[in-house]
Each structure stands twice: as structure tokens, then as C-alpha cells.
């Protein structure tokens, strides 16, 4: 997708076959299992499945053209004895132009190998980028905890699993349990990250956007 192109719900463009559009999105979503680079675009196009128009299909076709030129891409899992679990989380504030909801994206690495990635539109409408990043960190946290449980089965135990976040305020919010006027409305379910930080299971750290690998999902 071109960086200047923004997709939105529209009423004017001609309708396209919904079954075809849904089929395409379904196939592309399966392809994201080995191609995290297209996750952003596919998830964006997936939002218009209820009423797909010509403009949406054009963008989808563009994804196909991109894929045609890059069929040789995949994921390389290097042999390694490095079992350090690392999480990256990022968010896009109010990227959804219709409902003004934000999107969170996160990915997890085991050593140097990418093992999991996700992008999801948040259920709530947020008032600040801090809140958005904070919620994103919480969803990254749930995935990391699950992975940590899995690794325990293989006698790989880890403490202070780092989550890299590029918003300093969100990090402060997770480390300092103060409820001030800008943050006291955040739902309790997003605060569970504090508990895991306090217990020393997770550790939220700052990273600049340049090295924020989850950036491509948002």
C-alpha cells in the first residue's frame, strides 16, 4: 500500500463481490503465517469485508503484485542455543478513521528468531498515545506469559523477560502505580502488566523507534 493512501468505508465506489473479497482476505491471512511483512496491509483490508468496494479491491490487488515480486521471502530460523524471550510492542494512535480506534501490534523473539506476531485493533477509544501503547504492552505481555509457560515445559525458565516499548510515559505508567487524571479511566484489565513487573517476571524497557521491530505492524 502506498504510504499516502488511506482506506475508509465508502458509499460511492462500485460494490465488489463480497464472497471473492472475503476469500482473498482469508488466503492472505493464512499467508501471514510466513509473511509478517504483509500483516499490516492485510489486516487493514480485512476491515472492509462487510462492504467491500472497488477502492478496497484495488489495494488488495496491489498486495498481490507485491507478493508476486517477492515470492522468495520467508522466515529463517537459525540454529541457536539462545533461548532468551523478548517482546516488542507498538501502537498506532487512532489509525482507524471511522471509529477512531487505535491499533496495537506486537511481536516476540526467541533468541534472534521471530516466533510470533500480531496486530489488533483495540476495543476501546483512547485519549492519549500513552494509553494506546500501554494497552499494547498488556497484550504483548499476555502472549509472552503464555510462551514462558510453554518454555517451562522444556526446562527453560526466564525472569525479567524484556518487553520493548517506544513510549516512555507508558513505561512509567506500568512501573509507578499512580492514578492521575490522564490515566485513571484505563480499564483494570490493562493494568495486570504492573503485577508481573512487580513480581519480576516481566521487565518493560525503552527502545527507540528505529529498533522497534513491531513498528511494521502499526
Amino acid at each position: 500500500m502506498h504510504p499516502t493512501c488511506t482506506l475508509s468505508k465508502e458509499d460511492t465506489g462500485s460494490k465488489v463481490d463480497q464472497k471473492l473479497y472475503r476469500g482473498i482476505i482469508g488466503s492472505l491471512l493464512y499467508l501471514t503465517a510466513s509473511r509478517p511483512d504483509i500483516l499490516f496491509n492485510v489486516c487493514l483490508c480485512a476491515r472492509f469485508q462487510s462492504d467491500p468496494r472497488e477502492s478496497h479491491l484495488t489495494v488488495v490487488k496491489r498486495i498481490f503484485r507485491f507478493l508476486k515480486g517477492t515470492t522468495n521471502l520467508g522466515l529463517l530460523y537459525r540454529k541457536s542455543l539462545d533461548y532468551k524471550l523478548v517482546g516488542f510492542c507498538d501502537a498506532d494512535y487512532a489509525c482507524d478513521k471511522i471509529e477512531r480506534k487505535s491499533t496495537s501490534g506486537n511481536c516476540q523473539f526467541l533468541g534472534k528468531n521471530l516466533i510470533s506476531w500480531a496486530r489488533k485493533r483495540q476495543a476501546t477509544i483512547d485519549i492519549s498515545t500513552t494509553e494506546v501503547e500501554y494497552i499494547s504492552a498488556a497484550s504483548c505481555c499476555t502472549q509472552l506469559l503464555w510462551m514462558n509457560h510453554q518454555l517451562e515445559d522444556y526446562q527453560i525458565n526466564a525472569n525479567n523477560i524484556p518487553i520493548y516499548c517506544d513510549n516512555a510515559a507508558a513505561i512509567c505508567l506500568s512501573k509507578n502505580p499512580i492514578l492521575h487524571s490522564r490515566a485513571k479511566h484505563i480499564e483494570i484489565k490493562h493494568h495486570f502488566i504492573r503485577d508481573y513487573f512487580k513480581k519480576g517476571i516481566l521487565d518493560i524497557q525503552f527502545i527507540d523507534t528505529e529498533h522497534q521491530w513491531a513498528d511494521i505492524f502499526t
Binding site: L31, S34, T71, G74, L75, L76, Y77, R78, K79
Partner: peptide, 9 residues
Amino acid sequence: KVGVYVHQT
């Protein structure tokens, strides 16, 4: 030798 390559080509 270095590892495993996963793709959907």
C-alpha cells in the same frame, strides 16, 4: 546448515 527456512512459495 545454519537453520530452517520457512516459506509459502
